[in-house]
Structures are given as C-alpha cells and as structure tokens.
Design a protein around this nucleic acid. Structure first.
Length: 632
RNA sequence: GCCGACGUAGCUCAACGGUAGAGCAGCUGAUUCGUAAUCAGCAGGUUGUCGGUUCAAGUCCGACCGUCGGCUCCA
C-alpha cells in the first residue's frame, strides 16, 4: 500500500494514502474540518499526498465561516422541502452570518421564517452527513439541468475546471467548493433574520431573487450575544437618538434626504466645523467658498456631465443651463487660475465646508448617513508632481489625528481604476503609484479594491470603525491628473517653463451629516464634553434653591460653558431621569445644603456621585474637558 | 431605481368592512419633594395623498409620496 507523510502538530506521521483527516486527528478531536497544505478540507476527505494537517476547531473564525456556510445549505434544504419548485442559487457565509438566494414565484414573508427554522431543526435531527462528490463539469451541468436549477447551470457553465465538487446532505445537492461540517447535527445555534430582494449576481439588470438572511454560532450564548448586539445597535440608532436628543429632523413635506438641523444639532455641527477650520488653518490650508450652482457647460468640460450626470440636479437661469454642484472642485480650480502661479507658490491647499447636492436613488436614503444634500469638509491640494507624496502623507496624518480626536479606529483601502473613467493609462498608473507609495512609506496596512476608484482618479478610502465594530466610509484621498489638464492649470517652473500641477481631492470627515450620524451611534448619544450641546444642567430640589441656581448659571455661562437650569417644580428623581436621557455629562444638584455651603453636589452622566464641590472647583474640572482638542 | 414590509395624536402602538382608542409627551391644577418617572383633570385626529369598490372604508383595490429591511450605487 502506498504511504504518505502527514505533519500534524509538528510531528511527521506516515499513513496509508487515502487516510482521512478524521482518522489522523482521532475521535477526541473537536475539529469541524481541517486545513491540509493550507487548503480547507472536509474531515472525511481522503488525503492523497504529503502535507501538513491542522484541525479547524470551533472558536476560530474559519470554523465559524464553515459552520455558517453549512447552515445555509441546511436552510436551502428546508426551503426546498417546504416550497416545491423553488430554484436555488448561491448561499455563502458573510461577516455576520449567511444568506441564501432563492427564485420562487411566491414571495417569502417574515412569517415564513419560523416555519423554515422548524423545518431546519427537524432536518438537523436526522444528522445527515455532508458528503462530497467530484464529477465532471459536463455531468454536473446535465444533473442540474435535469433538476431544473438554471442558476446552478449558469454558474457551472462559467467555471473552467474539468471537475467540480457537489455536496449532498439528505436529498439536497448543491454545487459547492466546500468544505462543510461533518453532518447537519452539528449546528448548535442558528436563527433566520430577514428576507430581502437581491439581484442575481448583484446585477440590477438581472432577475431579482429572494434572499433569506440568517446567522449561526457555536453556542446559544454567542447567538444570544449577537441578537443582543442587534438590539444595542437599534438602541443607538442615530435616527431615534436624533429625535430624542432634538438634533435634527427629516420631513417628507420638505423632501427625502434633506436634513433640518435643530438648535442642538446645529450647535454640534458648529463645534465640529470650527474644530476643522482651526485645524486646517494650522496645517497650511486656506479657507475658500464657492457658488452653489455653476454653468452646465463647465460640468461638461470637467467630465462630470458625462460621468456623473445622473446624480446631479440641473436648473436654468436666463435661458442658460446650470448644474447644482455635487462636488466642490470646480470653483477651487478657478481660484488657482485667477493668477499666474510659480513653483514657489505650491502647494496651494483650498479648504471648503462645501454644501453639495447629489441625486441619490430613493431606495438608498438612510437617516443622516445617506442624504441628498450634505456638507463636505472638502479640500483640493494643487502641487508639483514632486510634492504629491508629501501632500498625501500630510493628509494621512491629518486623518489619523482627527480619527484619534473622535475616538475612532480605522482601516485604509486603496481603490484602483474603474471601468467608467477618464484620463490616460499612464496618468492612472502614476497616480495609483503615488497613493500606494505614500501608504507604504507611512507603514500603514491597507487593502486593495480593484476598480473602485473615482472616475477621475484612484483613491485611498478610510473606513472608520465605530463602537459596535461597524465600518463607515468617511475620509477619502483622491489623486487627479485629469482636471488640471481639462482646465489647463499651470505653474511656472524653475526653468521658466509652464508645468502642470497635480490635484488631490480629499475629505476627512467626508460628509458632516454622515459623520454626525456615525458619531451619535458611536457614543450612543453620550458625546464627549467638548461636543455635548448641553454640558451641565442645574437641578434644583425645591424653589428655595432657584436664586442659587441662577447665580451658578451666570457664573458658568460667563466661563463659556454650555449650561441649562431645570427650575421646574418637579421631584429631583424626575429631573435626573430627564437629564440622564438627554445624556448631559454633568448634573449639579442644588438643595438647601448646597445653598448653605455655596456649591453643588455633582452627579456624572455615568451615574457616579462626585460629591460636593465649590463652583470654582467644578469649573476647574470642567474646563479642560470642555475645551476643543488641540494637537502638538 | 428594484424586491418586500409598513404608514392611525408630537412619540410608541390598539381598533372583525359598521360611532377612531391607550400609554408617554403637552396644557391646567394640586404637591416644596435629595440622585432614572408625584397625583388629578383637560385637550389632542380630514387614519400619508389622490382615485376606485361598497348602503358603509383606518380596514378592500389602484396610483403616487414617504419610511423601514435588503440589492445596486455611494460621502
């Protein structure tokens, strides 16, 4: 009998060819699958060559992915059993669970989910094995054609391999690369979550299928924890908190995707915007302002008309077409062009809190995070080619500093040329290289998204991570060789020759609206003191403390602190509850004792009792927390 | 834009095709109270809009508007 060498846990073993990982790992192993020579394999997959074997044990992210993938097969089996005639398509594991897309003439409703769950539980009890089978592709095509599964056939027809693998559990067969858990009895905890439409292969021109989302975990506790996380996310939803904290509102009478900022939200914006203005001035930016509408002819020249028209609004003034700006770059180029620039003048850094309008498809609008009018903390840097690298690194530094100020973690992504784009191959290569080099030199890890760039240039996107680990696109740095060309921007070089500057588009927070939405959810509405619309509230126990409260109110206001007083004839517990729900950082309790002692008893938003303090002591405590952050 | 669900008082939600209701919030009054809800009373609505079916529509049908969950797109 032929033998093979398998390395397990550092020790080499010689076993007969065809031995399975399960045989080698032994019956005590908890593994769900294994990794052989780096490739995930089923436990019952006969090994045919030498290699290193590692178990994939529950608890690893890889095991979770396999579990969820197998659960999606189990769900597909249940759906097939309950809804005869349903066509299956694909069902992968995703970050939060899994889904499976079906084509069925009736639509699934949320009420179907418990039924499907029960069927899954029933099927699970049969402990069906997931068995792998390898057959020629042509045979698989014939098989799925006979089964009336056109989506599988389409997938098979696009594969180039000669053999493909099928997985069976019970009566259910699916085209699948695997691996899977040994049998369907090993799904400890799962739940189906929602139904939604999804285009076949993500293409909006193709048939829309019905997607069922679910999730699975190794323990009931982890599942409960995840469901609790969903609850927590709901509790933090900025749309709810935005109303409860009286920050903003959106009305259908006004228009979808149009935000109205209330006084507290307006204040929050002002605090963030002032912080940004100061920080940009400090870093050598100049503050500029451009018009809201610019002639359509200009958008034609810039390429926006050809590439971005469907997202723009147009109007007419005195018979001449105008486009409402969806981006701020055009007027910035006119600032540059307003005089002759020397190589000594560069870089020019124009910063604008620019209000832009974009016609987003109705179905994508969402609270503050997806709107049709928003303010960008936008800047355009015009520099010499030899300055690009330093400029990009400067922007990355700014992004990192700002992310730290707002207490966010972040991830970096490099996006390359999309299909719909303008400019020469050479320029694209150069620009992409410039971004890549800057990232490398900063020593920052990043992920590459092929074809995800803007139509005028490649970009670095910064995805921030909020307190619940969700990722949001905010900052983006885009390199552009095209617009300077189209608008014939030049500078006088050292040698007296006209040269072409490079343009870098960048935002830090991105959209102020979206950023505030994310900020609200990140802090669950409990903003740091410097961003809290109300920093301190004075709570009187009886009206005997009213004069004392008024005196403190004036003192704190004179210090530039944001204070309110609750002098209503209500019980202290009631006032505390309201202040707590408003997430006000400090509550000063004022009763007879405090009037007598000439101070206040301080309660923090955390519930912590900070005891009696004099007003001076309280001001000393609050002042540093209330100050706008500074660097350096 | 597409698929699905939904739209009733400021908010959260009830009401079989047969007189639109509750809690919270609001207003008025009483209560002077010590760390997350004091009590009582009052008021609050063209049931998203428009059209249709019906003796009768919040309820059934259609269109539109909007919201929510996704898809596609994206700051």
């Amino acid at each position: 009998m032929e033998e093979i060498q398998v390395v397990v846990g550092g020790a080499a073993r010689t076993v007969p060819r065809g031995t399975t990982p399960a045989d080698i790992l032994g019956s005590k192993s908890k593994a769900l699958a294994a990794r052989f020579d780096g490739r995930p394999v089923d436990l019952d997959r006969p090994l045919t060559g030498n290699g290193a074997l590692e178990p994939i044990d529950p608890g690893s992210s890889e095991a979770l992915e396999i579990l969820r993938h197998s659960t999606s097969h189990l769900m597909a089996e249940a759906v097939r059993a309950l809804f005869p005639g349903v066509k299956v398509s694909i069902g992968p594991a995703i970050e939060t669970g899994f889904y499976y897309d079906f084509d069925y003439d009736k639509t699934f409703t949320p009420e179907d989910l418990p039924r499907i769950e029960r069927e899954m539980a029933r099927l699970m009890k049969r402990n069906h094995k997931f068995t792998r089978q390898e057959i020629p592709r042509s045979e698989a095509i014939a098989l799925f054609t006979d089964m009336g599964e056109p989506y599988k056939v389409e997938l098979l027809e696009e594969l180039t391999d000669d053999t493909v693998s099928l997985y069976r559990q019970g009566d259910f067969v699916d085209l699948c690369r695997g691996p899977h858990i040994p049998h369907s009895g090993r799904v400890p905890a799962f739940k189906l979550l929602s139904v939604a439409g999804a285009y076949w292969r993500g293409d909006e021109n193709r048939r829309q299928l019905q997607r069922i989302y679910g999730t699975a975990f190794f323990t009931k506790e982890e599942l409960d924890q995840y469901l609790h996380f969903l609850e927590e996310a709901k509790r933090r939803d900025h749309r709810r908190l935005g109303r409860d904290l009286d920050l903003f509102s959106i009305h259908d009478e006004v228009g979808a995707g149009m935000v109205i900022w209330h006084p507290k939200g307006g204040l929050l914006r002002m605090l963030i915007e002032d912080f940004e203005r100061q920080e940009h001035l400090r870093r050598g930016y100049q503050i500029v302002v451009g018009p809201q509408i610019l002639k359509t002819a200009l958008w034609e020249r810039s390429g926006h008309y050809d590439n971005y028209r469907e997202n723009m609004y147009f109007t007419e003034v005195d018979g001449i077409g105008y486009g409402i700006k969806p981006m701020n770059c055009l007027s910035h180029m006119f600032i540059y062009k307003s005089r002759i620039r020397s190589y000594r003048d560069l870089p020019q850094r124009y910063f604008e809190l620019g209000v832009v309008h974009r016609h987003e498809k109705s179905g994508v609008l969402h609270g503050l995070t997806r709107v049709r009018q928003f303010t960008q903390d936008d800047a355009h840097l015009l520099c010499r080619p030899d300055q690009v690298n330093d400029e990009i690194k400067g922007v990355i530094d700014l992004v990192i500093d700002v992310m730290n100020v707002f207490d966010f973690e972040y991830e970096l992504e490099l996006s390359t040329r999309p299909e719909k784009s303008i400019g020469s191959d050479e320029d694209w290569e150069l620009a992409t290289l410039a971004l890549r080099t800057s990232l490398e030199e900063k020593g920052l890890p990043y992920q590459v998204n092929e074809g995800d760039g803007a139509f005028y240039g490649p970009k670095i996107d910064i995805k921030l991570k909020d307190a619940l680990g969700r990722r949001w696109q905010c900052a983006t740095i885009q390199c552009d060789f095209t617009l300077p060309e189209r608008f014939d921007l030049t500078y006088m070089g050292e040698d007296g020759q006209r040269r072409r500057p490079v343009m870098i588009h960048r935002v830090i927070l991105g959209s102020i609206e979206r950023f505030i939405g994310v900020l609200v959810e990140h802090f669950a509405g409990a903003f740091p003191v410097w961003l809290s619309p109300v920093q301190t509230i004075l709570l009187t126990v009886t009206d005997r403390a009213d004069d004392h409260a008024r005196m403190i109110l004036n003192r704190l206001r004179a210090e530039g602190l944001r204070v309110e007083a609750d002098l209503r004839n209500e019980k202290l517990g009631f006032k505390i509850r309201e202040a707590q729900l408003q997430k006000i950082p400090y509550m000063l309790v004022l009763g007879d004792e405090e009037v007598e002692a000439g101070g206040a008893t301080v309660r923090a938003r955390s519930g912590e009792d900070l005891g009696f303090q004099t007003i001076d002591a309280f001001i000393d405590r609050l002042r540093p927390e209330a100050a706008r952050p500074r660097f350096g």
